[in-house]
Simulated scan of single mutants.
Amino acid sequence: MKKDFYEILGITKSANTAEIKKAYRKKALEFHPDKNPGNAEAEEKFKLAAEAYEILSDPNKKAKYDQYGHQAFDNGGGGGYGGGGHMNMDDIFSQFGDIFGSAFGGGGGFGGGGGGSRRVKGSNLRIKVKLTLEEITNGVEKKVKVKRKVQAQGVSYKTCSTCNGQGQVMRVTNTILGRMQSASTCPTCGGSGQILDKKPTEADSQGMVLEDETVTIKIPAGVVDGMQLKVSNKGNDAPGNSIPGDLIVAIEEIEHEFLKREGENLHYDLYISFAEAVLGISKDIEAVNGKVRIKLEDGIQSGKILRLKGKGVPSINGYGTGDLLVHVNVWTPKTLNKDQKHFFEKNIDDENFIPNPEKSDKSFFEKVKDMFS
């Protein structure tokens, strides 16, 4: 069982943003690689602290975690945690390295010693993927072509002379409290510790070229319109000893011709004639994975809602599958011939034609209330 994020950082659920950041910095410094070279247990605790901070420092992710716990992210929702449990050490230093301040030399790896340069992460790419309701319900694998910046063949880099390969420059300033030393990202190499040495003619000023790449994206069932998924390391490269950025995939849902989606539930409007409502009938209706036959009892009323269990959309968080709600609408004819009109005039006062709802028949507002509860 996964350990509670609040317990990992040693805080309570009421902790504010500043307290969460302070607690993470304390844990990160305690288990930092420069203090624990070659210590596998410290490495694991360092990554867990980063994972906890990744979730709790984001208000939206924190709210989901407080409501659902680890299950809110275990099935691909939003592309996973995106935190320590799913990143390598370079990812952690790239995203959270500034929190460590000048306490260490800018990252490095376990067993690598202090004072090394950190690997810069390339920029992210963003694309939009359109999905049908069928693809969303069943999950799908999409292949997309993206243009990525990658390091050119034959390009080489050399140690940055400004920071001597450290990726940071140290500054000493005089204050009323005395001489203070601070570290900041090297302005020459951008923190990578390397600058361009040789490049082929087709490369840009950073030694990069644009290349087309086909990327396979596994999209889990139950995604929603506007959700973003992350494909790690499929963004742009950065110069030098860097790691690629990520490919951010925004989901766009294509509206279905007959079915309307509401969370995990689907809605279908079924129109039947007055005669069909009186006599009862079997009907084929549109479901997400093909047609489904339902039987309408004789005397069915307009506004009746039939619930087909498990015929909706799977939950992105693994909490089962929604239902298909069939809304029965009795179509009143607008024009009648002479014989038809005579039939209804003859029966207008018949007791079988006079509305007489039973106590068990719910009103429209009660049905709406039930539908949303």
Rank of each mutant, 00 (worst) to 15 (best):
K309I: 09
Y319V: 03
M170D: 05
G111E: 06
S282R: 03
G76R: 13
V169F: 01
V215G: 13
H342C: 08
K309P: 01
M180N: 08
T173A: 12
S161G: 03
G78T: 08
F365H: 02
A221D: 05
T216R: 11
K121R: 14
K35E: 14
Y24G: 06
G111V: 12
E44C: 13
V249N: 10
L266R: 08
E257L: 14
K143P: 02
E202N: 12
I354H: 02
I20K: 09
A23E: 00
T214D: 12
V215C: 11
Y68T: 05
D246K: 12
F100C: 14
D204V: 02
E54L: 09
N289R: 09
S315A: 07
L48P: 01
I294K: 10
G263N: 10
V140I: 15
C189V: 03
T201H: 06
E7D: 10
E253G: 02
S273Y: 09
I285N: 03
K234A: 14
K145D: 10
V223A: 14
L29I: 12
N233I: 05
K130C: 11
Q301T: 07
G240P: 04
E276Y: 00
Y157F: 15
V215E: 07
N236I: 14
G190E: 03
A221S: 15
E345D: 15
I254R: 00
K47G: 10
D98C: 13
A63R: 11
G105W: 12
L308R: 01
L210Q: 09
G191Q: 08
G113E: 08
L56C: 10
S363P: 03
N347W: 02
K334Y: 01
L177D: 07
